[in-house]
C-alpha cells in the first residue's frame, strides 16, 4: 500500500545522575539509548512498515548523542532524521510538549504519515502528553498506551490495525484504529530486532540527516511552577469517651515540642540537622559515622 510510518523516538540517558543535594541532573551523552517503550515503538513501525510496504522514518530530537540509536534504526532499514536545536531551546522544548510536537511535525515538511508511533511516555520527565499533541497537530486519531498493535487481514486483501491497551483493574480494551493515527505504545510484547552485520557496517559511516527545529513557541507558556504537594493523609477518627476524643484531637495533655526553625543554612548543615532530628525522634537508631556530609 506504500505510505509512510513515522517513529518518534526519544534518545536519552536512561540513568541520568541526580545530585542528591542540589537536584541537578547530569545526562551522559554517550549512554543515550532508547527506552523499552521507544524500542517497542520502532519495532512496531518496522513491522507495520514492512507489512504495508511503507517507508519507515525514525525521528529524534536532540544533539549528536541521539545519532547512535538513529544509526541502529538506519541499519534496521528505516530512514532517519535528527531534529537539531540549541541546547537551551532543547530543554525548553522537552519541558513544553506542545512546542515539541509542533517542532517534530514541522520536521516532516508537510508530509502526512499514515501512522505515527511513539513511546507511551518519555523515559526522563515525560507526562505522556506528546502523542496527543502530535495527533492534534496532524489532525488525526490517537490511540494511547498500547500493549499490542497488530495488523489483521480483512477480506479482499485489506488490513486493519488492531490495538490493545491496559485499563484499570486488569481490564483490557481492544480497539480498531482508523488511519491516519498516532499510536503510543508501552514497552511490552515486542523487543527491537537486531540489525544485520552488513547493514550495521553500512550504517556505521553514514551521515545522519539533520534539520533545524522550528522555533514555534506554544500558545500556553508555563511562567511559574510550584513544588508538588503530597495529598493529605487520612487518619482514623479517635475513639473512646467524648473527653478522650477531645483530648486526642487537641493533644491538650500531651507534651510536645514547638517546631524549631533552623536556618537559613547550607545544604550539608541542613542534612545534619535532619539526621539529628531523625535520631532524636527515634526514626534512626544512631547516626552512622559514614554519613558525615562534607
Amino acid at each position: 500500500m506504500g505510505g509512510l510510518v513515522v517513529a518518534l523516538l526519544r534518545c536519552t540517558d536512561l540513568r541520568a545522575e541526580v545530585d542528591p543535594l542540589s537536584g541537578a541532573i547530569t545526562r551522559e551523552p554517550r549512554t543515550a539509548a532508547l527506552s523499552a517503550s521507544d524500542a517497542a515503538a520502532l519495532e512496531h513501525a518496522l513491522r507495520i512498515g514492512s507489512a504495508w510496504g511503507a517507508r519507515v522514518l525514525a525521528i529524534s530530537l536532540g544533539g549528536p548523542e541521539v545519532e547512535g540509536p538513529l544509526r541502529e534504526a538506519l541499519a534496521l532499514g528505516a530512514e532517519v532524521l535528527r531534529v537539531a536545536t540549541h541546547q537551551s531551546y532543547l530543554e525548553e522544548l522537552v519541558a513544553d510538549e506542545q512546542a515539541l510536537a509542533r517542532a517534530l511535525v514541522t520536521a516532516l515538511a508537510g508530509e502526512l504519515p499514515d501512522l505515527v508511533l511513539c513511546a507511551d511516555r518519555s523515559a526522563d520527565r515525560g507526562t505522556g502528553a506528546l502523542p496527543a499533541f502530535v495527533a492534534h497537530e496532524l489532525g488525526v486519531a490517537q490511540a494511547p498506551g498500547l500493549v499490542s498493535l497488530e495488523l489483521a487481514s480483512l477480506d479482499g486483501g485489506e488490513t486493519e490495525l488492531l490495538a490493545e491497551r491496559r485499563l484499570d483493574y486488569g481490564r483490557r480494551e481492544r480497539m480498531r484504529v482508523p488511519l491516519p493515527a498516532v499510536c503510543s505504545v508501552e514497552g511490552a510484547g515486542v523487543r527491537l530486532r537486531r540489525a544485520s552485520l552488513p547493514a550495521s557496517l553500512a550504517a556505521s559511516g553514514a551521515t545522519i540527516p539533520v534539520v533545524d527545529a522550528a522555533l514555534v513557541p506554544s500558545a500556553v507558556r508555563v511562567v511559574q511552577a510550584r513544588p508538588a504537594r503530597p495529598r493529605p493523609r487520612h487518619l482514623p477518627a479517635p475513639t473512646g469517651t467524648s473527653r478522650e476524643r477531645l483530648l486526642a484531637l487537641t493533644g491538650a495533655l500531651l507534651s510536645h515540642e514547638p517546631p524549631v526553625v533552623v536556618g537559613p543554612v547550607d545544604a550539608p548543615e541542613a542534612a545534619d540537622a535532619l539526621l539529628e532530628f531523625l535520631v532524636h525522634h527515634g526514626y534512626l537508631s544512631r547516626a552512622p559515622s559514614g554519613w558525615a556530609v562534607t
Binding site: L14, R15, T31, A33, P288, G290, W291
Partner: peptide, 16 residues
C-alpha cells in the same frame, strides 16, 4: 561496615 548495603552498591551500576 562499608557504609553502603550491597544492594545499594550494585544499584550504582547500569545493567542492560
Amino acid at each position: 561496615w562499608d557504609g553502603i548495603s550491597f544492594e545499594d552498591r550494585m544499584e550504582t551500576v547500569e545493567f542492560r
